[in-house]
């Protein structure tokens, strides 16, 4: 690991993102638009707060997975990854740079999303908005980690997108957004318990209900961070300096 290489690689990834206006629009605009839609859907229901606090955490996960897996796949297929492996860049330099760059993007996304939700859409949580943003960023990093890992098993961008219904959608369906997890059939709840996003969502729900951070919230955040580390370690294992 080298700090200088990590910093310049993070900068390079952010510059690539900056040139891609459409992706920035998607990352920032899509959550805002969807939350606004929910605002009008739940005009007189009390469900809005419960749903939006979860949505704020799901978007970074979904979109960072998408953006990261495609970006890493391009690095592999364009020959730049092989070239980087002939330079002083280490595997961890590269993976952490992706984590930092897209983690930063997730932070911007979550901050803008939370600001819009609290200021314009009257979102109300008992706990602090800062914890909502913190957990949302952790969920974004979960997307980055899984995206880096999954891109190793895709040869084309089309194949990379195919991991969405396999890796991402089940986690969203089972995270408690549609049906509370304790009301699911026992085996479904069991599946839900081993999916990291469920714990990120649980942490967000805790912020919605309690003024001070609870043990359950910290546990959920801890599980998400642990899953990120595990995904990055596995992704490092898929990076091979020498290829056939």
């Amino acid at each position: 690991m080298s700090f200088a290489i990590l910093a310049s690689t993070t900068g390079r990834i952010l510059r690539q993102l900056r040139h891609d206006r459409r992706s920035i629009g998607l990352l920032i605009g899509a959550p805002v638009l969807l939350m606004t839609l929910l605002y009008f859907m739940f005009e007189d229901g009390g469900m809005f707060d419960d749903v939006v606090v979860i949505v704020l955490g799901i978007f970074p996960f979904l979109l960072m997975f998408l953006v990261t897996s495609i970006a890493m796949l391009r690095e592999r297929t364009s020959g730049t990854l092989e070239r980087l492996f002939t330079t002083p860049v280490g595997k961890l330099d590269l993976l952490f740079a992706y984590g930092l760059a897209f983690g930063l993007a997730a932070a911007v996304q979550a901050t803008v999303g939370a600001t819009v939700a609290y200021v314009f859409l009257d979102l109300d949580t008992v706990g602090s908005p800062w914890f909502v943003v913190l957990i949302a960023v952790a969920n974004g990093l979960l997307g980055v980690g899984l995206g880096l890992l999954c891109s190793a098993f895709a040869r084309t961008e089309f194949q990379a997108v195919q991991f969405l219904p396999v890796v991402v959608i089940p986690q969203i369906l089972l995270c408690g957004l549609f049906v509370p997890r304790d009301q699911m059939a026992g085996w479904l709840e069991g599946v839900s318990n081993v999916l990291p996003l469920s714990h990120g969502v649980e942490a967000l729900q805790e912020v919605g209900l309690h003024e001070d951070p609870t043990g359950v919230m910290w546990r959920g955040l801890g599980i998400v961070v642990g899953a990120v580390v595990l995904a990055l370690a596995l992704a490092a294992g898929t990076l091979r300096r020498r290829t056939p």
């Binding site: 290489i5 310049s8 364009s78 020959g79 980087l84 002083p88």
Partner: peptide, 28 residues
């Protein structure tokens, strides 16, 4: 060591300057 690959391997979504500066930065 420096390696020029047969099919160009630079970032197509960066400018020429950004590419060259990035590879330069890897060697301080």
């Amino acid at each position: 060591i420096g390696y020029y690959t047969q099919s160009p391997s630079v970032y197509t979504d960066l400018t020429v300057r950004e590419n060259v500066r990035y590879f330069a930065s890897l060697h301080s």
